[in-house]
Computed example of a mutant assay.
Amino acid sequence: MSLSEQQKLNQQRFGKVAVLMGGDSAEREVSLASGHCVLSALIEQGVDAHPFDPSERAIHELLNEKFNRAFIILHGRGGEDGVIQGTLQQLKIPYTGSGVMGSALAMDKVLSKLVWSARHIPTAEYRVLDKQSFNASECEHILNDLGGSVMVKPSHEGSSIGMARASCADELASAVQQAFDYDETVLVETYIDGPEYTVAILNGQALPAIRMTSPNGFYDYDAKYKTDTTEYFCPSGLSLAQEQELARISLTAFEALSGRGWGRVDAMKHANGTFYLLESNTVPGMTKKSLVPMAAKQAGMSFGELVIKILEQSLDHADTRLG
């Protein structure tokens, strides 16, 4: 089939597509960057795609303008937590990715931990702190319980926003207070000293793992989006057996949180060889330098092919998207 024939077929298959991007979350700028890359790729593939920013337009305009489906590329709250998914279901507009429950579970780091622990999926030891009841005098005890070095994370943020590492009581108290600027609930978990990996999930399959290294100490917001010093390795350098084990655990973890369609699971590898899962992302970054496109390229898939495969999910799940 020629390119023009494929483009015509895509236009017929998908109809008018809204690329939902931007939003009001702390990840707005990242979402806009991802959204414009997705939009350009869809148009190149012949899809009748248009940008739609829910922070600037009323969502019911999707109906008024007769959109047939939505490609969700909203990162963070309001877009990755089940809110927009539930709204689209009420409007009966098919969309990409996980449903209401899968989105909400993955967005909440504490609930993710509870589900994974119940399923015996390896994840670091942790404590949950509440803004209303937190007492800085607890920090020394928390550190001792969690091995002396910890990561502090707002429970409902992505892109490593509000995260910090702490190795003494004063550092922990300061990191927790900073995290409370973003969330009422904060997760403190044992720091895993080892290489970090991510596994992209696409239609029930794990793509090749990526290993990330950063001089920042961990893969934080600056390492992801602002510096040129972060290194990515794909192939990851794992043995075949380790690659298969990480893929298996990541798929199990994604599905345990009711993840559907596409996403990404992040993990650390302990010195003893055990993989500990960090979090699941149901709407990962989608710039051409992002991790999911990088893994797809290693699997022999172009960026254009990737966005079409994601958009195809809206054809298969038009009616039942609670999971």
Rank of each mutant, 00 (worst) to 15 (best):
F275H: 00
R211M: 13
Q132A: 11
R211S: 00
I161M: 08
H50V: 02
E231W: 09
D145V: 10
G102H: 02
K269V: 09
N68K: 13
L62S: 05
F303V: 08
A164Y: 08
T229I: 01
Y95Q: 11
L20S: 09
H317Q: 11
C37Y: 09
G99T: 12
Y191T: 06
H60Q: 13
A118I: 13
H36P: 07
V47A: 14
I73P: 00
A166Q: 07
I161D: 11
N144G: 11
E44W: 03
A41I: 10
I210H: 06
G79H: 03
Q132H: 09
H75N: 11
G217M: 10
R13W: 11
S214V: 05
E171F: 02
H36I: 14
I84C: 11
A295T: 02
I93V: 08
C139Y: 09
A49V: 05
S55Q: 13
I192F: 07
P195Q: 06
P208K: 03
E44I: 06
H36W: 09
A33S: 14
E44T: 15
M294K: 14
Y191F: 15
A164G: 00
Q90C: 04
L240V: 14
A104V: 06
E125G: 08
M21K: 03
D316G: 11
F233I: 00
S214M: 02
M294E: 11
A267V: 04
V176A: 04
L74V: 12
K8A: 15
F14Y: 15
L172F: 05
F67H: 01
K131A: 06
G76S: 06
V176H: 10
D24P: 06
A173L: 07
I84V: 15
A206L: 08
V176P: 14
I73L: 04
E157Q: 15
K269W: 06
G86E: 01
K269D: 04
V110H: 12
F254R: 02
V188P: 00
M1K: 13
P208W: 07
A173Y: 00
T87G: 01
M294A: 13
L111A: 13
V47H: 12
K288Y: 06
L105F: 06
A18N: 02
R248Q: 13
Y182H: 14
G99S: 12
A206D: 02
K224G: 00
K153S: 05
Q6A: 11
S239P: 09
Y219F: 15
L62D: 06
S98M: 09
G147Q: 02
L42F: 14
L311I: 05
S4R: 15
G261S: 15
A173K: 03
M107W: 04
D222L: 07
F233T: 04
P215G: 07
D108I: 10
E243M: 04
L42T: 07
C37H: 09
T185Q: 06
S290A: 02
S174K: 12
W116S: 04
K309P: 01
S160E: 03
A26G: 09
R28Q: 09
F52D: 02
G237E: 10
K109D: 01
E5M: 09
V292L: 15
I210A: 00
S290T: 08
M21A: 12
A206W: 03
A299T: 07
M268S: 05
K131T: 11
A209F: 04
S236M: 12
S314M: 05
Y191Q: 11
A49P: 00
S236F: 07
L63D: 10
